[in-house]
């Protein structure tokens, strides 16, 4: 992954009348990285993707892809970009094959039918059935083939696995990962499913109320989080003694129950607590990092 910037967003704002889409969003995505844009519904993920593709026009700010303005050079950008919308709309009366041939035919470069058939085979998609006869999951597969078939420099995927079963989801991420490694393309992956993004994304951005609140690698995000410590003491007295010495300023979410204690602590305070515990009679201790999901939810708890 190089430091060449593929997507650069500065103070990007989009208002729909009076309601906020995104507000003063700043983001840089580098060449060859898979960037996960995480946030709940209405946070501004789709708005960001749609501004980047010039489907909607910014209210203010700047957005560039490949060093080109997303509005003034949108055709050049879209020639090198594949997009899978979150709310996928296909031509219902046409077969999956016809949908793919028509839409992929809009690219300047010819996309061989062999490539379409190969991907359809991997995902178990019947290309010759009309889209209106396909299940939601199979329709989503058409969208995935549409996004993965062209050889492009940038993929913008908005909730790509919605409606897919876990096996196909895993297959999709495997192919995405392989293709990304092979071609060195950049991927902007918008999702609210942290478990999925965590597995493939190099970096993650958390979007809240239209603005990015955190951008970090998955590891950095985890390390920023507090550690959860669960201790089982030998006696109630030992627990009481430990509880009395526990510095209340550095611990959070303390739960004391019979001989068990659990609490959260910042990573840098870990030594202090372990020193304190070494002086206690303990039977068992468990130090865990919370799941990315818990970290993610923490960002939203602030709002709620």
């Amino acid at each position: 992954m190089s430091k060449e910037i593929i997507i650069q967003i500065q103070n990007l704002t989009k208002y729909y009348g009076k309601s906020r889409g995104i507000e003063k969003l700043n983001l840089e995505i580098y060449k060859g990285e898979i960037f996960g844009l995480l946030g709940p519904n209405g946070a501004g993920k789709t708005t960001t993707c749609r501004v980047l593709l010039d489907l909607i026009r910014k209210t203010s700010g700047e957005a560039q892809i490949f060093n080109l303005d997303v509005h003034h050079h949108s055709i050049e950008i879209r020639q090198r970009t594949a997009y899978l919308p979150g709310d996928l709309g296909l031509f219902q009366e046409k077969t999956a094959r016809r949908n793919l041939q028509y839409l992929l035919g809009l690219y300047e470069n010819h996309i061989p039918i062999r490539r379409i058939e190969e991907l359809a085979g991997i995902f178990g998609l019947d290309l010759d059935r009309k889209v209106k006869e396909l299940s939601k999951g199979n329709k989503q597969k058409v969208g995935i083939v549409l996004a993965l078939a062209p050889k492009v420099d940038l993929l913008i995927l908005d909730e790509p696995t919605a409606g897919l079963d876990p096996l196909i989801t895993a297959e999709f991420y495997k192919i995405l990962h392989e293709q990304q490694e092979e071609t060195g393309s950049t991927v902007l992956l918008s999702s609210h499913l942290l478990g999925e993004v965590e597995k493939v994304a190099h970096r993650v951005g958390i979007i809240r109320e239209g603005s990015l609140v955190e951008v970090a690698t998955v590891q950095q995000l985890k390390s920023m989080a507090m550690k959860e410590i669960k201790v089982e003491f030998a006696t109630k007295v030992a627990l009481q003694k430990f509880s009395d010495q526990l510095p209340s300023k550095i611990v959070e979410s303390v739960i004391l129950n019979e001989t068990r204690a659990s609490f959260m602590i910042a990573r840098e305070e870990l030594t202090k607590i372990l020193n304190l515990l070494s002086k206690s009679e303990i039977l068992d201790i468990e130090v865990t990092s919370p799941a990315l999901e818990d970290i993610f939810l923490k960002y939203y708890e602030v709002v709620s």
Partner: peptide, 14 residues
Amino acid sequence: ENKTIDLSLSKPIS
């Protein structure tokens, strides 16, 4: 209304 426009206009067509 059928949202096919997003797919069409995300391709390199003005």
